[in-house]
Design a binder for these strands. Sequence first.
DNA 1: GTCTATATAAAGATAGAC
DNA 2: GTCTATCTTTATATAGAC
Lengths: 187, 187
Amino acid sequence: MDTKSLIIKIATNLFQQKGYIGVGVNEILKACTITKGALYHHFPNGKEELLIACLKNIDEAITTDTEVIFNRYQTTMEATKKMIEKLVANFEREGTITGYTFSSIVSEMAALSETVLNACSDLYTKIQGIYSNKLVADGFSKEMAHSIALMMTASIEGGIMLCLTHKTSEPLKIISRGLPNLLKEFS
Amino acid sequence: MDTKSLIIKIATNLFQQKGYIGVGVNEILKACTITKGALYHHFPNGKEELLIACLKNIDEAITTDTEVIFNRYQTTMEATKKMIEKLVANFEREGTITGYTFSSIVSEMAALSETVLNACSDLYTKIQGIYSNKLVADGFSKEMAHSIALMMTASIEGGIMLCLTHKTSEPLKIISRGLPNLLKEFS
DNA sequence: GTCTATATAAAGATAGAC
DNA sequence: GTCTATCTTTATATAGAC
């Protein structure tokens, strides 16, 4: 792998584990076994430029992964249950959830960087689009699908946060069981 | 007001707006028009000790406020709708949600400080307890009330995050409309 | 394209006068 | 209990050799 891709790969992991401000440039360098010269050659605008590249990387990974799951299973319900199962397994294995969320980045950057916030906004929109399309295929109207997709995203992201806070996978498991109520028409 | 209370009050506001790492000690001092001497006299262990004091402060404010609302209205549904209305109004007025959340603090501190994480965990448990009690009064079993309360917390926290990300109050409004589906028995 | 060495700024914290 | 002045560490970023 070329140096640039390596930096992005390793930095992505670190940012998801510790947040943007929680990871120093030096830590990234050490993890990559490279030095400042290399990093600033590939990312002249420094750490924030690297973060944007990482967000794009996360974006692709999440989108691809979600699409695969949502294509494999017949209904939104099945697909979502499987997705949450993966999140739970991830959490129980590693104690964090690295693959599917960026809410910590949103939270810490919301007041700090417009660029980063926009990147996160796009990403959520994209994920919700996948949910929404599947819901339309399930028979919901476009508007209802939009609303339900939003509620799914909110519940799952909130659930991830509760798992991290309470250090147990119970919240996501309960949310999974409550899905049938979530995936229903409402006013 | 005495200096210590003043520091806590102002720091609480800043932490909620910009997160823990996003606010420097110097910024707090400036906002309080005091100097380091005063701050480190009241909080010998520095910034983290101050944060814990602020979390307790938020805790009381949120708990009191939530209890008032949940006592005033007959059902969990009505109370929750009113609560979300307040969140939406807060967001539309100030562009942020300062009074009712601490998820950004959780997210950024999750990997960094055990103490802070525990304080946040207690707080969520307390809020969910209020929801849960009301749900039992509504007629749900204790276990079901626990599960629904958790889903409420997850949706609302997730909804707040989506509002911040997309810079619109739409997510919370949609969640409010979807509440009837959330507040139902499930397996 | 990657290295070493250095610059520069900001953070949190302390010491001691008043 | 609050001030000023200072310390220490750490952060991001740059310059220039190879």
